[in-house]
Write a protein that binds this DNA or RNA. Structure first.
Lengths: 231, 231
DNA sequence: GAATTCAGTGAACGCTTGTACACTGAACAG
DNA sequence: CTGTTCAGTGTACAAGCGTTCACTGAATTC
């Protein structure tokens, strides 16, 4: 048997909060209590992600997130102590998406030649597949308040370090000092984030944006052979 | 005769709004009505700039800005129709600061050699001299909502184009296509904005940040001689 | 000197906000 | 079968919000 249910996993009427849009098709398997809780938690995250696109995380209220998720405001506290805590959870979720991306970029063998092309293509695909996550990350990276912003900053630093390690595997970078690799990785990530923003801002100029991104990276990598580290 | 006055230009008690911190020393010259109005308007802008640092522009209320400026909420409307309008005015003000900076960078003769050093130094000085303006710009560039964000985007595009024109004057860039110059300018501005953010985030690691910025730009410019435009 | 303009006032409005509290009822442990 | 746990409910409250309106009084105009 299959039914349409709201985020709480029950088909019951939710009265005033009927606009809850988080619907999905599920089988009515026996649902444990923690399973249901986890589902509501996810509904809250999804609701916040939906709303954040229009007004920014700081312009988001606990009440409307709860409403969008299909629960009463006070029930929010069963999952998060505050909106900030939800924000941090959102960062973690979005970062998981980002890590999935870099992993898929890593597994591609990718000759040094078309490495740029491949990377940018993967970036484009992942951004389009998870627009809301990337929207959230780029928007709150600097615009966010307190904990959210801090969490993104922290994760992004980690991300740069990982990329630096990856870069060290390339033949023409094998001898580079860690500091220099970090510089390069930082430049690449910044450039990539700029591209993400362009992709999100333009509805469908993908080809053009991808080309610009490739050119940008090409220019950066042109300097690599001539780089001499100075202490 | 010289007195301490609040933003309204009068030394009178302002009762409940006594926390208004926008104080300055002025001579009690005859103040015309429009002069006084202009002064209050500036007090509103200053108040918003103060508060925006902690909570972001979108998390800012008309009432608290008015309070900080030392006027009653309803008087706000004598100057701006909405907070968004004030936001746009703030963008213009901050952009004026930015333009002052680029002008001072232009007038320096600057050999191609230490051009990077000089530019970064000027950037650092201007950021430190107008931290709040840069804070506002970088924070609301992506985090902002609606009009403010749009206004910054527009002004920043203009800014990149101006830089592209400036770059065209250099010997080794004289033959570059407009599109390529724009690419380079864009990369430079993005890198500079990253540096601005680092400067604002760190209280006093200026030397280190300046060095990183120089290295970043050096890497970018290393690619310039080898660049071949592809259509 | 009288009339007009208008930046700033202060009370009042209808809303939304975060949070406290006592509650319900299905899932769970014994 | 019984008692406990706890996600979700509903009411309530004080505080803050944007905006309205009629007002005051000094600067300006005539």
């Amino acid at each position: 048997m299959v039914v349409l249910v709201n985020a709480r996993g029950c088909g019951c009427d939710v009265g005033d909060t009927a606009e809850a849009i988080t619907l999905s098709v599920v089988t009515t398997e026996p649902v444990s209590r923690q399973e249901r809780k986890q589902r509501t938690r996810q509904a809250l995250l999804d609701a916040a992600l939906d709303l954040v696109a229009e007004r920014g995380f700081s312009g988001l209220s606990l009440r409307e997130v709860a409403k969008q998720a299909g629960i009463v405001p006070t029930a929010f506290y069963r999952h998060f102590a505050s909106m900030d805590e939800l924000g941090v959870a959102l960062v973690e979720e979005a970062m998981r998406t980002l890590r999935t991306m870099i992993r898929s970029a890593r597994t591609k063998p990718a000759a040094y030649n078309d490495m740029i092309k491949t990377s940018v293509r993967i970036l484009r695909e992942h951004v389009r597949a998870h627009e809301d996550h990337f929207h959230f990350l780029t928007r709150e990276r600097y615009g966010g308040t307190g904990p959210v912003r801090q969490a993104i900053g922290f994760e992004l630093k980690l991300f740069v370090s990982e990329l630096a390690v990856d870069l060290a595997r390339f033949d023409n970078l094998r001898e580079w000092a860690t500091e220099d690799l970090h510089l390069l990785a930082d430049l690449i990530v910044t450039t990539m984030l700029t591209t993400v923003l362009e992709l999100l801002e333009a509805p469908s100029r993908d080809a053009e944006i991808v080309r610009t991104a490739e050119r940008r990276l090409r220019l950066i990598f042109l300097g690599v052979p001539n780089w001499r580290s100075v202490p």
